[in-house]
């Protein structure tokens, strides 16, 4: 049963990602992303990672996608804009990507993850609860990383404002 569910989720995630990339209509692309996020969140649930599942819905499906849709509607795009490609030769790119894929698959086939991380094992995590352990580790061992992520978001906002507001003003 679990395997069937995983198979369905994996297939759905892959297909919706492909549809999102290949769809010529931007709104459809964004909606395919929504499908992708929902399936991912179910995948997290099957792994008993309820916190990640909730975050996936609230942050990605809720906030990020709505922002995407706002942008799409604001610039009023019906069809994708066609720009000249950065790199011309399609077959060459295909071969490069394919060899990358083969390499990754060959390298990762038979991948066995670590049984325990420090004092943590899957059983221990289930006993305490995934959310609590995530919080403890994030705010103790990885507090520096957490703070840097905060600065990173600040820079992202700042960059957007600079590019859109400040430099426009200079032109006018």
């Amino acid at each position: 049963m679990e395997k069937v569910l995983f198979g369905y989720l994996a297939l759905a995630i892959l297909l919706s990602a492909l549809f999102a990339i290949f769809s010529r209509n931007v709104v459809r692309s964004v909606l395919w992303l929504l499908v992708l996020f929902l399936h991912q969140s179910v995948l997290f649930l099957t792994l008993q990672a309820e916190f990640l599942a909730a975050i996936q819905i609230i942050v990605y499906a809720g906030a990020v996608l709505v922002l995407f849709l706002f942008v799409v509607y604001l610039i009023n795009l019906r069809e994708e804009i066609r720009l000249p490609k950065f790199l011309g030769s399609y077959p060459l790119a295909f071969i490069a990507v394919l060899s990358m894929l083969i390499l990754a698959v060959a390298g990762l086939v038979g991948f066995v993850p670590a049984k325990t991380v420090g004092s943590l094992s899957p059983g221990a995590i289930l006993k305490v609860g995934h959310t609590q352990i995530l919080g403890e580790h994030l705010f103790r061992e990885h507090i520096l990383a957490f703070e840097i992520a905060g600065v990173l978001l600040l820079v992202a906002v700042l960059g957007a404002v600079v590019l859109v507001r400040r430099l426009r003003e200079g032109e006018l």
Binding site: A145, I148, A149, V151, L152, V155, A156, L158, G159, V162, L163, L167, R168, G170, E171
Partner: peptide, 19 residues
């Protein structure tokens, strides 16, 4: 994360010559 912080700032800096 340090790498991302650096890269993100530089992406914006590269686009500074808006003209």
């Amino acid at each position: 994360l340090g790498l991302e912080l650096m890269s993100l700032s530089i992406y914006v800096l590269v686009a500074m010559a808006a003209g």
